[in-house]
């Protein structure tokens, strides 16, 4: 009897360790999620109040009305993620392999922007991209922006803002995956007739895939739902789905549509991640991470 109860208690032990996180997830994620699912199926209006029906048409109306903003969100987020990957890979590579005793200081610089509020950082870009600013002037000089063209209030500005704001989320996972790579693997590769370029392609990049995957998700997912960059650096023509959700919730008080939009975005992102994982080879991913 006592042996059984001991084993029973042992098997319970992991659950005790997980309990705080589980409770957190249930209270702050699962319950609100179901609540919002319920809200998304309500009908009514802001004055009379909303009540539960099975109003699936909200979803179809939302897609019909806002598919432009959906596609724009995915597009901006994807472009910003690719830009971040291109900037972050050499940076993370340098940090992991070449920075030497400067490494920790440089890592600190990478996360330094987090010491300033998100909105404030984005407002700073309003100044940088200002119509009369140095950057816009120079770009007009070299003809990348037309004489009366603007930099601010364009999709370029919004994408630039998103890429800037999420860059650290790409750098850090990439750095981690490169840093823990055994340098001797590169020696082994050159020993086996691989030039430095081939060694990079055949060894460094495959071993960085978990970092590429993690970094891309950390950039892409929040970028899809972002509304701050579009609000501060763009106009209504650059609005993303986050801006629509925000206005539905806070201005129009159309809770069902706002909730439905959120669920559609969630679904789109999940499908996107699944495809992306398939492309990178999820099996490789798991094994490389193990």
């Amino acid at each position: 009897m006592s042996a059984i109860s001991l084993r029973w208690r042992r098997s319970l032990l992991p659950w005790w360790f997980m309990a705080p996180a589980l409770i957190w997830l249930i209270v702050f994620f699962a319950v609100p999620l179901f609540n919002q699912l319920n809200v998304s199926l309500m009908s009514g209006n802001a004055d009379a109040g909303y009540h539960s029906t099975w109003a699936f048409h909200t979803y179809w109306d939302a897609i019909r009305t806002y598919h432009v903003q959906f596609l724009r969100s995915l597009e901006y987020a994807a472009i910003a993620t690719v830009i971040d990957l291109i900037i972050a890979f050499p940076l993370a590579y340098f940090l992991a392999f070449r920075a030497g005793r400067w490494r920790n200081f440089l890592l600190l610089l990478v996360i330094m922007p987090f010491f300033v509020s998100y909105v404030l950082r984005t407002v700073a870009w309003q100044l940088i991209l200002n119509d009369n600013g140095w950057v816009a002037d120079r770009l007009r000089d070299i003809g990348l922006v037309s004489q009366h063209g603007r930099l601010l209030a364009t999709s370029t500005a919004v994408i630039t803002g998103i890429a800037y704001n999420f860059l650290p989320f790409m750098v850090l996972p990439l750095y981690v995956s490169l840093e823990r790579m055994d340098r001797r693997l590169l020696e082994a590769a050159t020993d086996l007739y691989a030039s430095r370029v081939t060694a990079f392609r055949k060894v460094t990049v495959p071993l960085a895939i978990p970092g590429i995957f993690a970094g891309s998700l950390l950039c892409f997912i929040p970028a899809c739902g972002d509304y701050v960059n579009a609000a501060l650096l763009g106009t209504s023509r650059q609005y993303m789905i986050g801006n629509v959700v925000q206005s539905k919730y806070l201005d129009v008080l159309d809770y069902p549509t706002a909730a439905a939009l959120s669920f559609i975005l969630m679904l789109l992102i999940l499908v996107g991640i699944a495809l992306y994982g398939r492309v990178l080879g999820s099996r490789n991913l798991m094994e490389a991470a193990a």
Binding site: A188, D191, V203
Partner: peptide, 13 residues
């Protein structure tokens, strides 16, 4: 020439 490394340095992927 080819080397057998002390830690083997096999490609994990």
């Amino acid at each position: 020439v080819n080397t057998v490394f002390q830690s083997y340095a096999l490609f994990p992927h």
